[in-house]
Write a protein that binds this DNA or RNA. Sequence first.
DNA 1: CATGTATGAATGATCGTTCATTAACGTCCC
DNA 2: GGGACGTTAATGAACGATCATTCATACATG
Lengths: 244, 244
Amino acid sequence: MRGAEAKNTRTTAGTGVRKKRILALARNLFWQKGYHSVSMRDLAHAYGCQPANLYNYFKTKESILFEVLLEEMEQIIQPIAHIEAEEDGDPVEQLRLIIFGHLNVTLSYRRSAKTLFDVALGSLSPRDRKVIVSMRDTYDRIIRKVIKRGQERGLFVSCDEKVAGFMIASMITRTRIWFHPGKGLTVAELAQFIFRFTLRAIGAREEVERAVASGNTAGRDAKRIRHLKDTAADSQRFNFPASA
Amino acid sequence: MRGAEAKNTRTTAGTGVRKKRILALARNLFWQKGYHSVSMRDLAHAYGCQPANLYNYFKTKESILFEVLLEEMEQIIQPIAHIEAEEDGDPVEQLRLIIFGHLNVTLSYRRSAKTLFDVALGSLSPRDRKVIVSMRDTYDRIIRKVIKRGQERGLFVSCDEKVAGFMIASMITRTRIWFHPGKGLTVAELAQFIFRFTLRAIGAREEVERAVASGNTAGRDAKRIRHLKDTAADSQRFNFPASA
DNA sequence: CATGTATGAATGATCGTTCATTAACGTCCC
DNA sequence: GGGACGTTAATGAACGATCATTCATACATG
């Protein structure tokens, strides 16, 4: 730790280049083959060294997983963290920001993919898992707040915003399974699809929807529609132990 | 194989009770801890025998996984297999059948859950994987056909039915991650939520939606609404290599 | 010399799987 | 009716492979 800078100037470049390169390789391998199916030998071979050398950079295999997941969650949360406190923002635009950002992080740099997140969470130490889960909770909190604000302004249909948030995150998360770049929609097109799909699902009026699609955000002051009550699902008693 | 009946009459009951019990235990363990995290010793301990005994019932560990996944896919597909050939059915009702059935299978008999399906598919032999994937493709084909029929009749908004099908399956599949029975919505309530969420998302008119919610299926002949064009996503050039 | 980087060998654990063996039981023949 | 026989069910020990990890050591460089 102490002489990290000195070491790196001496060889190639800035601070921790080697560690970052290993981390990038681990990220790709984990997403491709799953955490348990990637051995330290695999990772060492990808980096071009013996397994023992990896322990000069990481304490355990689990700590590598932790850093990979942490990096991912930061990329998702950082661009939308400001939304939670912005009470006066446009919910439709905020939703667009969340969906596009989340999908971009989800589908960038990856070819095939496993659902690393769900499975590997159990491999983390309780301490590390707490960190990741709390970041996921932050994401859930933000998207729910946006939905609720839209409902309160009559922009969206009234329904359980927790479950609705799960639905949105689920659609985005699972693109990892079926989406292949270059074979159909682009990532941007897919994001647009999910965005409009979601807007309709939460009952945004068609006028708002089309206005937003054409870049016009002035549809905010259009007349309200009558609320549709979800007979079964608008009970607020739903608890959320884990999410997407 | 030959004296299977003879053996079972001799001991406890019908054909293959022991194998079925092991299979049920394996299913629960796999979904709880993930395929790779369940050892043959774990399974043997749950059943109450030595690991070697399991090889009297299954050739390999992978064949157990295969039978578990096969059973699950059959439960999902069998109740909706007739839909594909029924050209004159009501798309809204068919969609309801698909969603309710799929969610019920997904959430029945399970407490906590991993995304076994995605991760474990790669552990199957190419031969076995082909079987499971082809069943998943059947599911995708059915749901897409229903969506497309609804669009052609003007019941649903015009959009890419393949991507829409992925969205629906994604929402259902991922309930495994966050849903906990007894802590909020019931499974039936959640199914109703997803059903209505989906109907709105694919642009089913509010009248149809409410008619269906109240059990009235006569809304089929109501007047059509103008189609909304998905500017980005209605291109039919999307390919589908894998799905939910 | 000290520190970062890397090696190769070794460790203990766990994994799926095989093998030889044994007990229990139904069937069939005498 | 009572052994011989074959199948099922189960055992305990063992095998080879792989796993994450450790350790002593070596080289290069500031």
